[in-house]
């Protein structure tokens, strides 16, 4: 989205995909793309790497936490309200002078409700923010190597005139394979 190209020149080519064997090369590749202003990228790793997240999101925390907080507040309110109202709705006199709405035992159900709904909201946030079940991802991210022992970068919405520059950045960063990005897609650049 932040690819700085004039509107009339925005004829896009197929996404460019780079495959890496080394983590430091991957980081160099992401950094190179970032410096050149190409931010419409997907980085695939078989496991989470903090360097990648730091580089792309610059330490901005995931908004998941707001969902968790909201879920917790919702759960606490709901659980306490439910126990209190259901008890008040059936005003049975308890022996021993216990009040209808007695706080200490109701705290237990309130606690369970808090945890339950905070978890459910967190799960919903995960699905929502990760866009799971996954859709709208370019075909190029589908590579069995990315869940095994390789890393990958896919650059989307590449302007035809930028393709060569992007591929050069990726190839020079140490990618073992660079494909896509128009007619010369067949010749994968090879470095290292």
């Amino acid at each position: 989205m932040s690819v700085s190209v004039p509107v009339e020149a925005a004829a896009t080519v197929a996404p460019i995909k780079a495959v890496y064997k080394h983590l430091d090369c991957l980081v160099t590749g992401i950094d190179g793309l970032k410096r050149a202003g190409f931010r419409d990228i997907h980085v695939m790793t078989p496991f989470p790497r903090h360097e990648v997240e730091e580089l792309i999101y610059e330490g901005e925390p995931s908004p998941v936490r707001w969902f968790t907080l909201m879920g917790g507040l919702f759960g606490a309110t709901m659980a306490f309200t439910m126990t209190a109202l259901m008890s008040a709705n059936w005003p049975m006199i308890m022996p021993g002078g216990k009040p209808l709405v007695s706080i200490p035992p109701f705290i237990i159900i309130t606690f369970e409700g808090t945890i339950l709904w905070a978890s459910m909201f967190t799960f919903a946030a995960l699905l929502l923010l990760c866009r799971l079940p996954a859709r709208g991802l370019p075909k190029e991210v589908e590579d069995p190597r990315f869940s095994n022992d390789h890393f990958g970068i896919v650059v989307e919405r590449v302007g035809a005139h930028n393709a060569a520059q992007i591929k050069s950045i990726l190839a020079h960063s140490g990618a073992i394979e660079v494909t896509g990005g128009g007619e010369d897609a067949a010749h994968g650049a090879h470095h290292g």
């Binding site: 990228i41 997907h42 980085v43 695939m44 790793t45 078989p46 496991f47 989470p48 790497r49 990648v52 997240e53 792309i56 999101y57 925390p61 995931s62 998941v64 936490r65 967190t122 799960f123 946030a125 995960l126 923010l129 990760c130 866009r131 799971l132 079940p133 996954a134 859709r135 991802l137 991210v141 589908e142 990315f146 869940s147």
Partner: peptide
């Protein structure tokens, strides 16, 4: 449909 993209891992780790 997990693909291990940066976006997925970011929210995944937080969650």
């Amino acid at each position: 449909g997990w693909r291990g993209t940066d976006r997925q891992w970011r929210h995944y780790m937080a969650a």
